[in-house]
């Protein structure tokens, strides 16, 4: 009985998957066509593959520099979020006082605030503080916005790791920071990986905050780059399509490499009970 249903199920699933992948496939296919060939048909297979679109687009999109801009912002932001939140979350979990409870609430309650509710005033404050129009400025704003969820996760996780080692290390003469650095940090690694992955995905693909903060084209991230590029070349589909593929590749590669952790993170974050 089971094998019969399987064929039907398999076909249904195959059709759904094909529909889901169809847009990416079509964009990929056409990105290798010459303009004249594209005018004939968008669905036909290219008669000859050309890489010209990619070569031109890599230059016009300033792909390499924008890739590194995105990388800089992502690395700075994620390192900051993970390190600062590990420090705070771990200590909040280890301290039993009114202050630690207040801090925990203060840090985590803001998870209820949508970014769009604070974007107007955040833009104003960033102008006043002088962090607009720079990659490091964008990074520290990302840290400020990202610590709430990270501290929530670090605090929860720290409560589950045993205290005995830390107490032994303290008796042996380690100071508070050394205990954190050499005893707690290695134990916090699993949750640090989860936090890092969540934040890489968010920051790498973020549009709105960079759109509000970066006005000079030389600072643009990949997402801002494609946004501007598409506005300029949206009648020239040969270049636009290559640009879309180039912009999507890094995130898809990241997914394929860290797939196991990403899937586990999503599943465990939600299905905890």
């Amino acid at each position: 009985m089971k094998s019969k249903t399987n064929i039907f199920v398999l076909m249904l699933l195959a059709v759904i998957t094909c529909i889901i992948l169809f847009p990416v496939y079509t964009v990929l296919l056409n990105s290798f066509k010459t303009r004249s060939e594209m005018l004939v048909s968008f669905l036909a297979f290219p008669k000859e593959f050309t890489f010209d679109n990619y070569i031109i687009t890599i230059q016009k999109l300033k792909y390499v520099s924008r890739f590194f801009n995105t990388l800089i912002v992502t690395v700075l932001s994620v390192t900051g979020i993970v390190f600062f939140s590990a420090l705070a979350g771990y200590k909040i979990a280890r301290t039993q006082s009114r202050l630690s409870k207040v801090l925990y609430l203060l840090f985590t309650l803001s998870m209820l605030i949508p970014f769009h509710s604070i974007m107007i005033s955040l833009t104003q404050i960033s102008k006043i503080v002088g962090v607009r129009n720079s990659l490091w400025g964008l990074s520290i704003i990302n840290i400020g916005l990202g610590v709430n969820l990270a501290i929530f996760l670090f605090t929860g996780f720290s409560k589950s790791i045993p205290k005995e080692l830390e107490e032994a290390a303290a008796i042996d003469g380690c100071n508070e920071f050394q205990v954190f650095r050499y005893i707690a940090m290695p134990l916090l690694k699993p949750i640090a990986a989860t936090v890092a992955i969540i934040d890489v995905l968010w920051i790498w693909n973020d549009l709105l905050l960079p759109l509000l903060m970066l006005t000079s084209s030389k600072d643009f991230t990949l997402v801002l780059g494609i946004n501007q590029f598409f506005g300029l070349y949206n009648s020239d589909w040969t270049l636009a399509l290559a640009g879309l593929i180039l912009t999507s590749i890094p995130a898809i590669m990241f997914y394929l490499v860290f797939q196991k952790y990403i899937i586990k993170g999503i599943a465990s974050g939600a299905v905890k009970e």
Binding site: G80, A88, S110, I113, I125, S126, V129, I141, G144, L145
Partner: peptide, 13 residues
């Protein structure tokens, strides 16, 4: 331990 996170969190959130 909480200060670095708190400063940025306070200013930008």
């Amino acid at each position: 331990f909480s200060l670095p996170a708190f400063i940025l969190y306070f200013v930008f959130m």
